[in-house]
Design a protein around this nucleic acid. Structure first.
Length: 491
RNA sequence: GGCGCCUUCGUCUAGUGGUUAGGACGCUGGCCUCUCACGCCGGUAACACGGGUUCGAAUCCCGUAGGCGCUACCA
C-alpha cells in the first residue's frame, strides 16, 4: 500500500466535535494503515473566531483519545509551519501567481453593497451570487485604488461554461457546472486567506494525498479543483463523509445535546467506546462484528465501506457500547478508577470491603459514575423502610426466625467476615437453618431477611451485602429489625 | 429559490437481480433468581412513492416526494 498522507485541519474553536472526531479518526486510520503520516493543521484564518488555548485543548483531547499526530504545530515536521496564521506570506505569493495568470482579481465592493446586491437578486428570484462587477475593472485603475489604500478583497475568476467533475472516493463522480460557482473570495481585506485558498495551497505543499472531510464541503470542491488547475497541480483524492445528524436529522450541532468529545468524557464515556461508536457511524466492516479497537480499525477500515447517507448520533447505543468496554476491565482497574470518589467510604469501611462491593455491584453498569453511585448507596445509611417490606417483619414466622438467625450470624467468627466467598456460603446455610424450624424458606425467607437488612424491595444479593457491610453493621441492623418486629408485637 | 448530495426496522446498518430482507441498540415476552441488574432464549419493527426493464427487483433505469448540505471578506 502506498503511504498516504492525511490531515485533520480544524479551526481552533476550542472543542472537538464528535463529527470532527470521526473525520480525524478516518484520516488517522488511512494514514496508519498505509504507513503514511497523519498531520494536524490549524486553520485559524478567521481572526474573529479565534479561541485562546484551543490548540492546547485539542492536543489534550487527542491524547486522551490515544490518537497521535505525526506532524503538527507541536511536534513540527518537514512541511511546516502547521498553523495557517504563520503562513501568510505563502498565501500571498500564491495569490500573486493567480493574479499574474489572470485567475484572481481585486474586488472593492463593500459588505454593505454586496448585501444589497444579494437582497435584490433574491427579490428577483435568482440565486444570490457575486455579479462580478469588479472583474472587468481596468488593471491600472484597480492598481491605483489599491495603492491609495482602498479596502479590497481578491476573488477567483471562475471560468464560464465549464463542467467540473469531482471524483469522490465515496460518492463517485459529481459534476457541477462552473456557471453555478461563485467568484469566491480568496484573500480577505484583513490580509488573511479564506479557507479555500489556504486549504488548497497547504494540502499541496504538505503533500496531502487524501482529503477526507465532511459532506458540507462537497459543493465547494469544484472551487478547489479549479485552484489546483490554476496552479498546475495535481489534486489529492477526495472523500466526502456523510454528515453526523441530530435525532431530528439536521446537521449535528450544539443546542441539541452534547456534541463535544469533552462532554462525553465528562459523562463517563471511555475513549475506546467513543472511537468505536463513531467509527461505525458510516463505516461497516462487512460482517456482524461491532466491537473494534483502534488496532482493529487500522487493519480493517476502508473508504469503500463507508456509506453515503447521514447518520444520527445515537447516545443510547454509545452508552451500551461503553458498558461493553467496562465489562472488559478487571475489578482492580474499576476500583482504581473510582477510588477517588470513594475516599471516605474506604477509610470508614476498609479497602477490602469496598473492593468487594465494587466487584459485586459492577454488573450492568454503563459508566464509572453508575458504579460509584451503587457503591455509595450500599454504604449509605438505610433509607426509610418500604411499607410493604416493613409489614413483612411483623409476620410471626419471620419474627421468630429472625431471632435464631441473628444468633447464628453472631456466632460467625470475626475472621470469617473478611473471607467473602466463604461468608456468602455461610450466610446462605445460616439462613436456611434459621428458617427451617419455622417452615420459612425460599422466597419468603429471603424477602424476610431483606426486610430485616435493608427494608427495601430491591438491592444487592444479601449474601454479598453482609460482606460489604461487615459484622458490625450487619448485626446492629439485624438487632434493630428484631426490635421493630417485637415492638409491633407488644403494641 | 438555485445547485449538490441522500433515502432498508424508531436508531446504526448488512444486502450489488432469485434471501423466510440478516445483525446491533432500543422496546418487549420468557427463563434464571431472595429482589433489581447481569446473563440466556424469543418477539416487535424496514426496502419513501409511482412507473418502467426483466421470467424475477430492496438491488438496474426514469420520474415524484421527502430529508439534508451549500448558497459569507465562517470554516
Amino acid at each position: 500500500m502506498t503511504p498516504r498522507r492525511t490531515r485533520y485541519a480544524p479551526s481552533p474553536t476550542g472543542y472537538l466535535h464528535v463529527g470532527g472526531l470521526r473525520t480525524a479518526l478516518y484520516n488517522y486510520l488511512l494514514a496508519r494503515q498505509s504507513g503514511g503520516a497523519f498531520v494536524l493543521r490549524i486553520e485559524d484564518t478567521d481572526q474573529t473566531r479565534k479561541v485562546e488555548g484551543a490548540v492546547e485543548n485539542l492536543y489534550e483531547i487527542f491524547a486522551w483519545l490515544g490518537l497521535d499526530f505525526d506532524e503538527g504545530p507541536r511536534s513540527g515536521g518537514p512541511v511546516g509551519p502547521y498553523v495557517q496564521s504563520e503562513r501568510l506570506a505563502i498565501y500571498n505569493d500564491h495569490l500573486q501567481r493567480l493574479v499574474t495568470t489572470g485567475h484572481a482579481y481585486p474586488c472593492f465592493c463593500s459588505s454593505e453593497a454586496l448585501e444589497i446586491m444579494r437582497a435584490e437578486q433574491s427579490a428577483r428570484g435568482i440565486s444570490p451570487m457575486y455579479d462580478r462587477r469588479c472583474r472587468t475593472l481596468a488593471r491600472d485603475a484597480a492598481r491605483t485604488r489599491i495603492a491609495s489604500g482602498e479596502p479590497h478583497v481578491w476573488r477567483m475568476a471562475v471560468p464560464p461554461g465549464r463542467v467540473i467533475a469531482v471524483d469522490d472516493l465515496i460518492r463517485g463522480t459529481v459534476e457541477i457546472r462552473s456557471d453555478t460557482v461563485d467568484d469566491q473570495v480568496l484573500m480577505k481585506s484583513d490580509g488573511f486567506p479564506t479557507y479555500h485558498l489556504a486549504n488548497v495551497v497547504d494540502d499541496h505543499w504538505m503533500e496531502i494525498t487524501h482529503v477526507v472531510r465532511g459532506e458540507e464541503w462537497l459543493t465547494s470542491t469544484p472551487k478547489h479543483m479549479l485552484l489546483y488547475e490554476f496552479f498546475g497541480w495535481t489534486p489529492p483524492r477526495y472523500a466526502h463523509l456523510p454528515l453526523l445528524l441530530n435525532p431530528d436529522r439536521s446537521k449535528m450541532s450544539k443546542r441539541s445535546g452534547d456534541v463535544a468529545v469533552e462532554d462525553y468524557r465528562r459523562r463517563g464515556i471511555l475513549p475506546e467506546a467513543l472511537i468505536n461508536h463513531v467509527a461505525l457511524l458510516g463505516w461497516h466492516p462487512g460482517d456482524d462484528r461491532e466491537l473494534f479497537g483502534v488496532r482493529d480499525l487500522i487493519a480493517e477500515f476502508s473508504l469503500e465501506r463507508v456509506g453515503k447517507a447521514g447518520a444520527v448520533f445515537d447516545v443510547t447505543k454509545l452508552f451500551w457500547m461503553n458498558s461493553e468496554y467496562l465489562k472488559e476491565q478487571s475489578d482492580d482497574v474499576l476500583f482504581e478508577r473510582i477510588r477517588g470518589e470513594l475516599g471516605e467510604l474506604i477509610e470508614v469501611n476498609g479497602e477490602a470491603r469496598v473492593r468487594y462491593a465494587v466487584a459485586s455491584l459492577r454488573g450492568g453498569i454503563q459508566t464509572y459514575a453508575d458504579l460509584t453511585e451503587r457503591v455509595v448507596q450500599v454504604f449509605a445509611p438505610a433509607p426509610h423502610p418500604d411499607n410493604e417490606m416493613a409489614r413483612l417483619l411483623h409476620e410471626s414466622a419471620i419474627r421468630d426466625m429472625l431471632g435464631d438467625f441473628i444468633m447464628r450470624m453472631a456466632e460467625i467468627e470475626a475472621a470469617q467476615w473478611s473471607e467473602f466467598a466463604g461468608l456468602e456460603d455461610r450466610f446462605k446455610s445460616v439462613a436456611a437453618e434459621a428458617g427451617k424450624p419455622y417452615g420459612v424458606k425460599g422466597r419468603t425467607l429471603w424477602r424476610g431477611l431483606r426486610a430485616a437488612l435493608t427494608g427495601q424491595p430491591h438491592g444487592p444479593e444479601l449474601a454479598k451485602l453482609v460482606g460489604m457491610w461487615g459484622r458490625e453493621r450487619t448485626l446492629s441492623q439485624l438487632g434493630r429489625a428484631l426490635d421493630t418486629a417485637r415492638n409491633a408485637l407488644s403494641r
